[in-house]
Computed example of a mutant assay.
Amino acid sequence: MLTITALTTDTARALQAGGLDANGQTPERSTSGGAGNPCRHCLRYIPEGADMLILAHRPFPDPQPYAEVGPIFLCAEECARHEGDAMPEVLQGSPDYLIKGYGQDDRIVYGTGAVVEAERMMGQAEEIFADPRIAYIHIRSARNNCYQARIDRE
């Protein structure tokens, strides 16, 4: 079984408390415009008018050549982490996503990257996980390459 994995609560709480982002900067505070601002912890859109954080995130344990850093949004106030089998709200708002597999060494496994229609994403992830070298899969914006969430084997 596959599961969508959100940003950890420890990471979210540290950033919400003013911790530094992947670039060593304090996250910027802003006001959400609504549906275009997906929180990477609750995996819901930050409501219009709500406070949010904009920050640089590296969804890898250590810096290395394949450890991409990019912008993400996060609820400024504490929110509940996405859990469970349901497709999160933020992954229902785009027609397609870029997904790609990574090995235990946190490096891209070449040949696994694909832009897939949203309704085919989990099926394509199953196919990628058929490769024993795959440890996890990233879900990214097909248009801006922004990190959305991770897919793990349960």
Rank of each mutant, 00 (worst) to 15 (best):
R40S: 05
Y45G: 04
P59M: 07
E83I: 03
E77N: 13
Q92M: 15
D131I: 06
A149G: 06
T11P: 00
E83R: 14
D106C: 12
G101F: 07
V69C: 10
A80K: 06
A76Y: 02
G34L: 11
G36R: 10
F60V: 05
T26K: 11
A125E: 03
A142W: 00
D152R: 11
V109A: 06
A14S: 07
L15Q: 03
E117D: 10
G70M: 10
R150C: 13
G103W: 03
S141L: 12
A114G: 05
I72A: 01
E127A: 09
S94E: 13
R153A: 14
A80V: 11
D62Q: 07
N23A: 13
A56H: 08
Q25Y: 08
A114L: 05
H41L: 11
A114F: 04
N144Q: 14
P65T: 02
M52D: 01
A17C: 01
T11E: 05
D62L: 10
P88V: 14
E117I: 01
D21M: 10
H138S: 09
A142Y: 02
R140I: 04
L2W: 01
Q25L: 14
D10Q: 08
S141N: 15
Y136P: 05
I137D: 10
T8D: 13
I46V: 07
V116Q: 09
G18E: 05
D10P: 00
R150P: 01
L15K: 03
T8N: 10
A80D: 14
E68C: 10
R150A: 15
G19C: 07
R133S: 06
V69P: 07
A130T: 02
G24Q: 09
A135N: 09
M121K: 08
H41F: 06
T11F: 00
P47R: 01
I139G: 02
A118Y: 03
I54C: 07
G101R: 07
A118R: 10
Q124V: 15
G111M: 09
E117S: 05
G33T: 11
L91W: 03
G33H: 09
L98K: 02
S30T: 14
Y147C: 09
M87D: 00
L43M: 15
T8Q: 08
D106G: 00
Y45F: 15
R140V: 11
H82Y: 04
A142R: 01
Q104E: 09
Y136G: 12
A12P: 04
E78S: 13
